[in-house]
Design a protein around this nucleic acid. Sequence first.
DNA 1: ACGACGTAGACTGGATCCATGATGGCCGAG
DNA 2: CTCGGCCATCATGGATCCAGTCTACGTCGT
Lengths: 253, 253
Amino acid sequence: MAEATATGSTPARVTTPRRANDRDLVDSLVTVLQERINAGEIPAGSWLRQEALAKELGVSRMPVREALRELQARGSVELIANRGARVRLPSTRDIIEVYELHGLLQGHAGEAAAELITSQQLDRLAAAEELFRQSVEDLRAADDDTTTAQRHWHEANTEFHTVIIEAGGNKHLAEMYDNLHHKVPRNLTWIALGNDVRRLEKDAAEHAGILDAIGRGDPAATRALLTEHVKRASDLLVRTVDEIGQDSPPRRR
Amino acid sequence: MAEATATGSTPARVTTPRRANDRDLVDSLVTVLQERINAGEIPAGSWLRQEALAKELGVSRMPVREALRELQARGSVELIANRGARVRLPSTRDIIEVYELHGLLQGHAGEAAAELITSQQLDRLAAAEELFRQSVEDLRAADDDTTTAQRHWHEANTEFHTVIIEAGGNKHLAEMYDNLHHKVPRNLTWIALGNDVRRLEKDAAEHAGILDAIGRGDPAATRALLTEHVKRASDLLVRTVDEIGQDSPPRRR
DNA sequence: ACGACGTAGACTGGATCCATGATGGCCGAG
DNA sequence: CTCGGCCATCATGGATCCAGTCTACGTCGT
């Protein structure tokens, strides 16, 4: 009954879904939809109506269909025969499994990165670490509105781990890593940190430790620290999700 | 000029592309095309013409288009704007990277499998090992036609590693593992073994060792052996591909 | 004879149309 | 009053149609 439909309030286009300026139209649709899903703009479990999306984005149903097909291949939505596409909502088990792979990939890439990393990439890591500290300051200063802190932390976290993956040098691993975020949205982690300055500081400290290990060129330590780091984040997230899962809508029905 | 077109000689359907018997029509098309690509039936680098495929498979262009879109998301083909889809040919670097991930995932899953595996799964591993031995016998007996040996070995290898992944219990890891085979066809490994009884025996022995480690419930050994095993296969494959890459068409142009 | 421009062909990509399948409500019977 | 079946409605999935674009070939000019 109260099925949320994705036909949100945003009538205007987000980036430039219309017109195949740079590349393919379908690709841009995929990007837009993926971002909306990741941002939680389109709630998990809601149906994606082809016609509604088409009208909203100013295209016909055709490219939407192909975009949905690709999103299915990514694992972001599930296509039910003759019913339509719905946003997959990750279960607790999904989160656990995905983060396990997260840690595995990060650890592996980090081990290689400790030996392969360039000075530019090291600089980027240092900048990210700085941004982590900034985020802590933001949260301390913020009274109620924590969006700035969240944005900074999110940027820093994305950059940090992306650089490590890149520095590892395995393109296919990078691709896999990206795919993971299609299954469990990136911004979830922030929920676990839950506006808690203590936790955020701890998180920042762990990142600093990892950066240090990479800077020393210590592969084993880098792997261990990264694996630990992700594991900790996972445990925290799972605990948090379980808690809010009591009253929030983790599973309507 | 001599662009190989995928419109092969097989007019009949392979399994049942037409009719959505079990599930979706597009899905079955994806499966069929994927298998053909993996089997080398559709040569790497060749164009996939929508109309030709549609006619051959007895459907309209539409489901073919969506199937190609999904194959792109998988990484099996690349879509070039207004040009069409072409089968991606893995480079040596691709092979190295993919096999590196292969080993990583196998090792990780194997470590968990050593503790989680069920007796049924152990039976399946044992059966696979038996099939490996059968394959060796086949190759010894075969004078010229090694297809039986290859088929048995391929079945055994697929089953063996699939069971380990399954036994690891991480569904998302299993999915990732499957995706790897979309980037580098599974049957490639056979090329490396190259009808060499000695190598095949060594390969079988390694599998036996892994099975033994799992049977003992030794996670560390299982991981180590699996990683080693895949690494060895990778090195061998790369060397072989490099060799035949001299006269074969690894890169026309 | 060689190179550049123009044109024709072919293929992809988007739009519209139609049939099929599923769902939810309504009505009737037990 | 409740359960089961039938029907209307709606959305998907496939087919056909049309326009845009890229390529390749041929011709013309130098």
